[in-house]
């Protein structure tokens, strides 16, 4: 187990380093931020001074070494726009995004699992077929457009919900959260539902496939023969065995969800770190873009790591053998 842990940690570190190199090179090619920062009538001396202040006059390897050294100490540079640490800028927006993604994740389980089980238990019924066909829609619909249509319906025509932004926040455990107030929920519900749309279809498909496979198993037949109520069979025997792959996939997809908030936050003008990324790209705020990509990578690597460990813990059949298993 210790050997497995160490090897897995080594892999994670390698991924992080590769990403650091790629991100740095990519963002370096983005163009010089000096053009954005200097006032249009600045002369060459002023521009040089500006470049020197941010270390932009150094050769590439030197810049990278400095970047890596600082990154290891938790310093990803100062935002050109906000004038403070890029990580701090991301950190301010992070709770909003995590809150949105977690809520969406909850929605997708709450919607996806029951529907998937129903479709799996009755694959030939009208309900089952309808659920599966609809899940194709959820899978393939362009989320940003669905979000816009929800805004059109609930904000523009019905006027029930706000069209965008984030509700008032209260501090919970040092984070600014908005799920504590009704107004916060009113702002969260549309973006979270839109974000959950894709994942809930995925969960429906997974649960349907899982259910169809599990109901043919011996232990389900045995449970039936024992005279257990179907509620108990579903709750105890089916759900438990079905949830292992669902949890794994959801865990991995949580990272994708955080990345997709880039789109949802833009549609709903939601002040999370996804919207910050788009703004920073447009303003050539290089440190913030780098910080965003590194933070997301760390989140991904962390999630994958935890999911892998959970998988091993949940399913004793997973062997901790060589790398090619």
């Amino acid at each position: 187990m210790i050997a497995y842990l160490l090897r897995r940690l080594g892999q994670s570190a390698l991924v992080l380093f590769t990403m650091a190199v790629l991100v740095f090179l990519a963002v370096f090619a983005l163009g010089s931020p000096v053009d954005m920062l200097a006032s249009p009538d600045a002369d060459q001396a002023e521009r040089d001074a500006l470049a020197a202040r941010f270390g932009l006059d150094q050769p590439l390897p030197v810049q990278f070494a400095a970047f890596l050294g600082n990154a290891l100490q938790g310093d990803l540079g100062a935002s050109f726009v906000y004038g403070k640490s890029a990580l701090a800028v991301i950190g301010e927006r992070l709770p909003a995004t995590i809150e949105l993604a977690l809520l969406a994740l909850t929605f997708s389980v709450m919607i996806g699992v029951p529907l998937g089980v129903i479709a799996g238990l009755r694959p030939k019924s009208i309900a089952g077929r309808a659920i599966m066909s609809t899940s194709i829609f959820g899978f393939s619909l362009p989320n940003f457009w669905i979000g816009m249509m929800l805004i059109l319906l609930f904000s523009v025509y019905l006027g029930w919900l706000p069209a965008g932004g984030r509700g008032p926040t209260t501090e919970v455990l040092g984070m600014q959260l908005s799920i504590t107030s009704l107004e916060g929920w009113r702002h969260l519900i549309l973006p979270a539902l839109t974000l959950a749309l894709y994942k809930s279809s995925l969960v429906v498909r997974l649960c349907e496939a899982g259910t169809r496979e599990i109901v043919t198993q011996e232990y389900i037949r045995f449970a039936r023969a024992k005279g257990l109520s179907s509620f108990r069979i579903i709750w105890l025997h089916l759900l438990k065995n079905m949830m292992i792959p669902v949890i794994t996939i959801l865990g991995m997809e949580f990272g994708a969800m955080i990345a997709f908030t880039v789109v949802i936050e833009t549609v709903f003008a939601y002040p999370g770190m996804g919207k910050l990324l788009i703004e920073s790209i447009n303003r050539l705020d290089r440190p913030v873009v780098v910080a965003y990509l590194m933070v997301t990578t760390v989140i991904f690597v962390l999630i994958n790591f935890i999911v892998d460990l959970l998988y091993v813990a949940l399913d004793p059949r997973v062997r901790l053998g060589g790398p090619n298993e």
Partner: peptide
């Protein structure tokens, strides 16, 4: 392991 939207962006 990285979402396509982010890479493409």
């Amino acid at each position: 392991s990285f979402p396509s939207i982010l890479i493409a962006l």
